[in-house]
């Protein structure tokens, strides 16, 4: 009985904790993606381009938004395992995608709050900033245009796409 307990408890902890954490991680991830989809839908009409637009009579302002995404120890461990054979690490792709969508939505929301009519010259940047943590910063910055009077026209039909 004592031997069973001595082996059973560590084994349970060893497998139980990662399972609980990954289930929690997936739930949080799904929730975040659901919220992101709603926020994206809310800002979908806003013109955003990654090139420069020449506009007359406009005010300009530099906006930036960033988010530090923790990859999570389990997924980080998985990167090591996956590297043995190589290939895409889809679970981490998903984390970075969430981070990038988050920065994108935040910058558009910020532009709307400030009364902007368009975002031009959008740039994304990613860097490893975690130190000991498996984490990456995703930065999005752009020039916000505020036009007076008539509604904005950038002359682009294909605007306001979220990054992919």
């Amino acid at each position: 009985m004592e031997i069973l307990l001595a082996i059973g408890v560590p084994v349970l902890l060893m497998f139980g904790i990662p399972v609980v954490l990954s289930v929690a991680g997936v739930l949080i991830e799904n929730r975040h993606e659901r919220i992101l989809a709603e926020r994206e839908a809310a800002v979908a009409g806003f013109p955003v381009i990654s090139t420069t637009a020449e506009l007359d009579g406009a005010q300009v302002e530099l906006l930036s938004s960033s988010v530090v995404m923790g990859i999570g120890y389990l997924k980080n461990l998985f990167i090591g395992l996956r590297s043995v054979f190589g290939g895409e690490i889809a679970s981490v792709t998903r984390v970075m995608d969430r981070g990038r969508r988050e920065t994108y939505v935040r910058i558009v929301e910020e532009a709307e709050r400030r009364g902007g009519t368009a975002l031009v010259n959008v740039r994304f940047e990613t860097s490893d900033v975690g130190g000991q943590q498996p984490a990456a910063e995703i930065l999005c910055y752009a020039t916000m245009i505020r036009q007076h009077g008539e509604s904005n026209t950038l002359g682009h039909a294909d605007t306001a796409r979220r990054p992919r």
Binding site: L21, S22, A24, G25, I28, E29, H32, S66, V67, V68, M69, G70, I71, G72, Y73, L74, K75, V95, G99, E102, V129, G130, Q133, P134, A135, E137
Partner: peptide
């Protein structure tokens, strides 16, 4: 980071 996600303090 046990579960991953945004690290607000660092942001």
């Amino acid at each position: 980071n046990l579960v991953g996600g945004e690290l607000t303090g660092y942001t």
